[in-house]
Nucleic acid binder design. Structure first.
Lengths: 225, 225
DNA sequence: GAAAACTTTACATGAATTTTACAGGAAAAA
DNA sequence: TTTTTCCTGTAAAATTCATGTAAAGTTTTC
């Protein structure tokens, strides 16, 4: 699971935030300036960012704008944090695309509940976007399949086939149904086409290939046991 | 469907605009002065207005302000048109709430695409100021693309294509969608037009061209890995 | 009317898909 | 159990099909 990045120059506040979040199970990385934050961003994209508006080297709003313009971070939820109540209204008014705002000082509970709410919001919106089974993940947006971190290169039919099987994980999909859904209703004549694709799929999925099981005389089923 | 109103005193330009828009299927009504325009407005509200800044009887900016103050026209998308480049900056600076700006002379294709984009925007969301991926930057305000410091010269379609791909960075955009978004709904027949533009785009982006990946049987995806 | 932008045509290329042919092995029949 | 049958797995060859590319043609811009 990705981490939460805390960007805050005040050491005290940073530690409180960091501690609170770690305490409820999140992985946290913290930064005291924009520079180190940007550097880390090169290597890892967080699942949420807690961003202070006042930083020694760069204005929080500028950072926000930059993050929103980069494809890797465009969709990362961001909570802006500021000390002044007056300032927050100004910031909100600008509507720079932050997902939430908080004024310091704030309670630990408030922080946590806002983070949770935001994460819930950002994942619920993107439902059905991916399917997974164990370490096997099918990402429907990228149209890409992963075994853990490793990317698996599938052709069109292979992908459609796997998607169908994963959608129906745990229940048998008859051959006819597969041919119908993946190849189209009017696929005529007997041939080894489907078997062929199952074979290459199993091969490409390596050890995860065993998730695809043959149900003799009926079809195939995908299940993790 | 509602119409597009073209308000422009120069007969030549008015006819070109009018003709171009009608040609792609819009219903157009045109006016050579503010007076007749206002009269017509009493009876019918258009879905978009193309408004020249210089008119014989009333200043375009005044008209704009009036339109924005009336409840019936407050939300109608408006494109301001002006002859002088210097003037457009002034107008933009004032930020009177026009939705887009164009300087004469402009190409017919640009006009149509801006109209389409604006109509789409008025139903969808807004636009980003700039997009980036690695050292590749697309500046939507300057309407310009850079590889690091170096400026890349793109044609209109190339730019729109790249913008679409970058907006959807990380997710596959199907061919149909691309044709629909960049070329317009009514693009008929199979041809290699899209491939052609992809090819030149890849060429012009040099090493960054590899960010554009083809997803066989589906479309294209832009991603940095 | 020249130049630039865009589209079409025609063909090349190579990946994806299907076919063919046969091997292997589970279930059914003897 | 043994035999037979039928279904599925596999490999290699054949074919199909989507995309890439160049060049010519058309439209648009200036």
């Amino acid at each position: 699971m990705a981490a939460i990045y805390v960007v805050e120059d005040d050491q005290n506040i940073r530690e409180i935030e960091s501690f609170a979040l770690k305490n409820v199970g999140y992985e946290v990385e913290d930064f005291d300036c924009a520079k180190s934050f940007y550097e880390r961003l090169q290597h890892r994209t967080p699942m949420l960012i807690l961003l202070d508006i006042m930083l020694p080297d760069e204005d929080g709003l500028t950072i926000l704008k930059t993050l929103r313009s980069r494809s890797e971070t465009r969709k990362v939820p961001i909570i802006m944090v500021t000390a002044k109540t007056t300032e927050i209204d100004k910031v909100k008014g600008l509507d720079m695309g932050a997902d939430d705002y908080m004024t310091k000082p704030f309670g630990v509970m408030e922080l946590i509940s806002r983070v949770k709410a935001l994460l819930r919001r950002s994942t619920d919106g993107g439902e059905e976007k991916s399917l997974s089974m164990g370490d096997l993940v099918l990402d429907n947006e990228k149209r890409m399949v992963y075994i853990g971190k490793e990317q698996v290169d599938l052709t069109f039919k292979e992908y459609e086939l796997l998607k169908l099987l994963m959608r129906n994980a745990g229940i048998v999909t008859p051959r006819d149904t597969i041919l119908d859904r993946v190849w189209g209703t009017d696929f005529e004549g007997e041939s080894r086409t489907l078997d062929m694709h199952i074979k290459t799929l199993r091969q490409k999925l390596k050890s995860d290939g065993k998730f695809i099981k043959t149900v003799r005389n009926v079809g195939y089923i995908m299940s993790s046991d």
